[in-house]
């Protein structure tokens, strides 16, 4: 019984939040890794792209809500998501036309593109703050919980409750669908294959008649979809605040590097590695330990390895370990 209680406590405080967070990170890291693989630079504007997409979705959500349209138990934001993706895609393609295309044409060094992405980040950040402000915005509506802690306790008779918020469940489902679609697209469709060919060897791909403009456009489209979805899911799960998305940049990059930059499957794995380490290291394990350990061995403190303020240090430490011991990442990305 104690063991079951410990398991439930673990699931409630570590497993469920980490899976949801990991899915959000994985979606973000997929975007970073796609840009890295196909457009060949590290896009520091990615966090703010997520914020931009989430902002568009929130605006549409408000519009829908004011017309009295809702998705029943699901958050209205899911209905608004396609519009948000479309607007973000248009914005990203305009950015590509105005900024990145020039450097691609002149074959500038990747670091110049990265620096241009810093400029784009500034502009996007300014636009987001200008339009929606810097306040905390909570736009989740619909049912709060898939399983409530009390119902779970009553149904199972355990001391520990397991609560799954509907936003967490939605995050996992939506992320799974998005990833399945992406992998199907990359591996099965003609366009997806041409994108992978372009990523592997640009010159060879051009020789075999692949249209680079089309590849780039489709890439931005997919990145917009991934980034907006990730941004909206994160915003639903926590809340929307313009500058928290900038701080997501480090865990997202850590996920992409841990998995191996340029490797989509690596980005997904990296996202979950980072999420589980962050949540695991900053969780106070006292409760779980209280169930499994014998009385006299129990810790007197919170048994928390690091305070939650150092979450970011965890992703950084993992990043450094990977850089030291396996710079190409778990799945042999194309770095170094």
């Amino acid at each position: 019984m104690d063991l079951l209680n410990a398991l439930v406590a673990f699931a409630n405080f570590v497993f469920v939040p980490a899976v949801a967070y990991g899915a959000q990170l994985a979606l973000g890291a997929l975007g970073v890794t796609l840009i890295y693989g196909i457009l060949r630079f590290s896009n520091f504007a990615h966090g703010d792209t997520m914020a931009f997409g989430a902002m568009c979705t929130i605006l549409v959500t408000w519009g829908l809500q004011s017309w009295g349209i809702s998705a029943g138990p699901l958050p209205t934001a899911l209905l608004a998501l396609p519009v948000g993706i479309a607007v973000t895609a248009l914005f990203l393609m305009a950015t590509d036309r105005a900024v990145y295309r020039f450097y691609r044409k002149t074959r500038a060094a990747p670091v110049i593109l990265t620096m241009a992405s810093l400029g784009v980040m500034f502009v996007m950040n300014g636009i987001v703050r200008f339009i929606i402000g810097v306040e905390d915005i909570n736009f989740a509506d619909g049912a709060r919980f898939l399983i409530g802690a009390r119902e779970f306790r009553e149904a199972t008779g355990l001391d520990e409750g397991l609560a799954i918020r509907s936003t967490q469940a939605i995050t996992v489902v939506v992320a799974a669908v998005a990833m399945a679609l992406l992998f199907w697209f990359l591996n099965r469709t003609r366009t997806g294959k041409s994108m992978r060919a372009f990523a592997d060897n640009e010159d060879l791909a051009l020789l075999s008649g692949i249209n680079p403009g089309r590849v780039v456009m489709v890439t931005w489209l997919i990145v917009a979809a991934l980034a907006t979805t990730a941004g909206v899911l994160y915003g639903l799960d926590k809340s929307f605040k313009a500058f928290t998305y900038f701080q997501l940049l480090l865990p997202i990059f850590a996920s992409a590097v841990v998995g191996g930059l340029g490797s989509p499957i690596g980005a997904v794995a990296g996202g979950f590695v980072i999420a589980f380490s962050e949540v695991g290291v900053t969780y106070a394990w006292k409760k779980v330990a209280g169930y499994v350990m014998p009385e006299n061995l129990q810790p007197d403190g919170l048994a928390q390895l690091l305070s939650t303020d150092y979450k970011i240090a965890v992703s950084f430490a993992i990043l450094v370990l990977v850089l030291l011991f396996r710079p190409t990442g778990l799945f042999r990305g194309k770095s170094v």
Partner: peptide, 10 residues
């Protein structure tokens, strides 16, 4: 070069 950027950001 990008790794230095990410590491310094961190």
């Amino acid at each position: 070069s990008d790794y230095l950027a990410i590491a310094t950001l961190g």
